[in-house]
């Protein structure tokens, strides 16, 4: 019954459902990209460089992973609220606010998974690259390329945490119809309205999206190299 409703929703191509799904997907993609770049850098830095305070950063990252989304939402809210220090930028209740919150949400996951992925590579790899005079960006690229499955799952874990979260989108996006309403905030809304079937149908759409993204990327990696 629920499945039928979900399928009807998907195939009826209801404009609003499509908009909500696209909003969720694009916000998650954008936030993943935004957080990915510094997370890759930090993860790499942690795995290849020795420096003071490194273990503190790792412990900190791991604890940040457990932080509830609403707490992150709340922290960002207090900063980008008009009464907060960055209130003038008017980021609250816009997609940008969501992207900030979601990026912060996925950053520690991606960074610490990248760190452990790169810690697993054989020491012969960087030595071989050094030996062939491969340095800088090319070296980094090769290290990522060689551990791409692990790097990919790190990024996908970050994406997964984002696409399924509700606290940040609700708090920083405001669940505004035709603007910042995402699949998860719709689920929360429909649940509160007692529209359980609709909520579950949206849940199925979420699973469908997440499944498609994962499958596509894994197929991509498999075909590569």
């Amino acid at each position: 019954m629920v499945l039928l409703k979900a399928l009807t929703l998907i195939f009826s191509a209801d404009r609003e459902v499509i908009f909500i799904a696209m909003t969720s997907l694009s916000l998650a993609v954008a936030s993943t990209i935004v957080s990915m770049i510094p997370a890759l850098l930090l993860g790499t830095l942690l795995s290849i460089k020795k420096f003071r305070g490194k273990s503190i950063i790792i412990v900190f990252l791991n604890s940040l992973m457990a932080l509830p989304t609403v707490v992150i939402g709340l922290m960002i809210y207090s900063i980008i609220s008009r009464s907060g220090p960055l209130g003038g930028l008017r980021l609250l209740f816009t997609p940008w606010g969501i992207i900030i919150g979601q990026s912060i949400l996925s950053f520690p996951i991606i960074a610490s998974l990248i760190y452990s992925a790169l810690s697993d590579i054989r020491p012969e790899l960087p030595e071989t690259l050094n030996s062939f005079g491969v340095t800088g960006i090319r070296k980094l690229y090769m290290i990522f390329r060689e551990s791409r499955t692990a790097v990919l799952s790190a990024i996908l874990s970050g994406f997964g945490r984002i696409i399924g979260e509700v606290g940040v989108s609700m708090m920083l996006g405001g669940n505004i119809r035709w603007y910042t309403r995402t699949i998860t905030t719709t689920i929360a809304l429909e649940t509160s309205r007692g529209e359980f079937e609709l909520a579950l149908a949206m849940g199925l759409i979420l699973i469908f999206i997440s499944l498609s993204v994962n499958t596509l990327l894994h197929l991509g990696v498999k075909s590569h190299g």
Binding site: L25, S26, V29, A30, T94, P95, W96
Partner: peptide, 14 residues
């Protein structure tokens, strides 16, 4: 493309 499209949409909203 998805990312650019999205950001573009959001920018318009902005």
């Amino acid at each position: 493309i998805t990312a650019v499209y999205t950001l573009n949409c959001f920018a318009e909203g902005q």
